[in-house]
């Protein structure tokens, strides 16, 4: 689902801005990143809702393993089914956007490093809106401002690889740091929100 949305998003952009190869090559990394962000957000609102409906969430609450661990496992599963396919599809879509080899490798690498952060930050929003019937829009409103740093450093690292004033390593290291920080902190916030929602 997410990958199909990713494909559609990337393929409608040239219709809007025109098929000029130079322009596409220049803004390609940004388009790929925005499409990946929206695609991973699209799949997030069902992250905990299905579990709430069939009662698994209560079992997670009662289980011996801490809820944070269950959240982390859910996030890992979500990333494997959404973030990873997006990353794998990115080189092919990048070709459609006239990216060169180094740019393709850079975008794929930044997506690999950055999509876990998108999933983990999104999990907080998904947990906060789990009880709402149409929480998707509200979740996007809550989560999108928080994902801006990921977007900034992801795109700047991808663009630095194809020439620019900064080196690739600096923004890429910050992107990895954001992902690791999200890995350490977000499960706790999401689990806290789920506990509040369960009461």
């Amino acid at each position: 689902m997410g990958v199909v949305f990713f494909l559609v998003m990337v393929s409608i952009v040239p219709f809007a801005i025109g098929p000029d190869p130079n322009l596409l090559a220049r803004i390609g990394p940004a388009i790929l990143w925005i499409a990946a962000l929206l695609a991973s957000l699209l799949c997030l609102d069902r992250l905990f809702q299905a579990d709430l409906e069939d009662g698994s969430l209560d079992l997670f609450h009662l289980g011996r393993a801490p809820l944070e661990l269950a959240v982390l496992a859910k996030c890992a599963a979500h990333w494997v089914t959404t973030g990873l396919p997006l990353t794998l599809a990115a080189p092919f879509l990048g070709l459609m956007l006239q990216q060169e080899e180094t740019a393709l490798a850079a975008v794929t690498l930044t997506l690999l490093a950055g999509t876990p952060a998108l999933t983990l930050i999104g999990a907080i929003g998904a947990a906060a809106t789990v009880t709402l019937r149409r929480g998707g829009l509200l979740m996007a409103l809550l989560v999108l401002p928080l994902t801006i740093p990921v977007l900034i450093f992801g795109v700047s690292a991808a663009e630095a690889a194809t020439g620019g004033t900064v080196s690739f390593a600096a923004p890429f290291a910050i992107l990895c740091a954001i992902s690791l920080g999200a890995l350490a902190l977000c499960p706790f916030a999401a689990a806290a929100a789920l506990r509040s929602a369960g009461e």
């Binding site: 907080i124 906060a128 709402l132 509200l138 809550l142 916030a189 509040s196 929602a197 009461e199």
Partner: peptide, 25 residues
């Protein structure tokens, strides 16, 4: 976003705590 969250959640202690968590984030 926080205002929208509070408007969607009814006046419940649950809504208050979830909004509080989002505020801290």
């Amino acid at each position: 976003g926080l205002i929208a969250l509070r408007q969607t959640m009814e006046d419940s202690p649950r809504g208050a705590r979830i909004a509080a968590i989002m505020t801290l984030v």
